[in-house]
Design a protein around this nucleic acid. Structure first.
Lengths: 152, 152
DNA sequence: CTAGGTGCAAAAGGTTTGCGGTTAA
DNA sequence: TTAACCGCAAACCTTTTGCACCTAG
């Protein structure tokens, strides 16, 4: 990622954090840049690994803290499609997730329409804040791991 | 639960297990009956607690083993709407889940239609096995815990 | 100046595994 | 008879917490 992009994301991040009464720190900027740099769905462990190149002294606890701050200010969201480790997603557009049963990777998939209350019979008293759609299946030859499996 | 119902579920369970090459054991019957007896969405820990009344010698590992067997033979499904412990659901009808942000409880909600590929733009290569819809929000005065919160 | 953040290490869930003994088929 | 299962305890993985030091505002 180029430094001007980093600066952009830094400024945006700065404002976002301030709005929530959170501080702007180099660690938070770095973790955010890490997530933006590779828009997949890494686990905290993976974010930690990637963050260590460029910031070798960063700790796991700080990665969790930073991810938490990013989620709080709406720049990152949690993805919990499986029982495994929580994944983090920097794509804030409305979308669903596809989880591959073979390789475990998570892919973004588009929605044809907003998943409104239309699909579901919500009891009156319930107050809805978020609707999540998770699709499970196989990505087949979409990724290297699954290409290998297909080849066998 | 009455003993004839237990027997019914036992017979159905027996067949189901056999179909998957799994054995019928008293533990599996007991855990299944526990889930059927109270159709909420208990965690493994809660299933363990409930199973101990009537089978005090049962162990946590066995509960996990039994739940796993029940999931394998299609009598129980996993519910993983939050980062917390996996919950288990004996309602195998097609439905969505509502998770309360306040009390953490999970409620079943009906679908107006089957959540078919209609809602989502699945890339061609992807092979879909299951679509899950999770609704988040507040159940308000639906449960005792949330009635308390509302009262404050 | 000080509330909030960082890094470390230890603890806390939740789940899985290894193993000797038991049991359903 | 014997592969599968049980119960126990220990291990494992992910996440949280306590604490001393540090730093952004």
């Amino acid at each position: 990622m180029k430094s001007d992009q980093l600066l952009d994301s830094g400024n945006s991040l700065n404002q976002r954090l301030a709005n929530k009464g959170l501080r702007f720190t180099p660690q938070r900027q770095h973790v955010y840049a890490t997530l933006l740099g590779q828009r997949d769905h890494p686990t905290a462990e993976e974010v930690f690994m990637r963050s260590k190149s460029g910031k070798p002294e960063i700790s796991m606890a700080t990665v969790y803290n930073c991810l938490d701050a990013l989620v709080k200010c709406g720049l990152v969201r949690l993805v919990t499609v499986d029982r495994g480790a929580t994944r983090y997603c920097s794509n804030m557009e409305e979308h669903a997730h596809f989880s591959c049963d073979d390789c475990g990777k998570v892919f973004d998939i588009g929605l044809k329409a907003s998943p409104q209350v239309a699909e579901v019979n919500i009891p009156e008293e319930f107050e809805v804040s978020k609707i999540e759609i998770a699709v499970h299946g196989r990505c087949k030859d979409k990724c290297p791991d699954c290409r290998k499996i297909q080849a066998n």
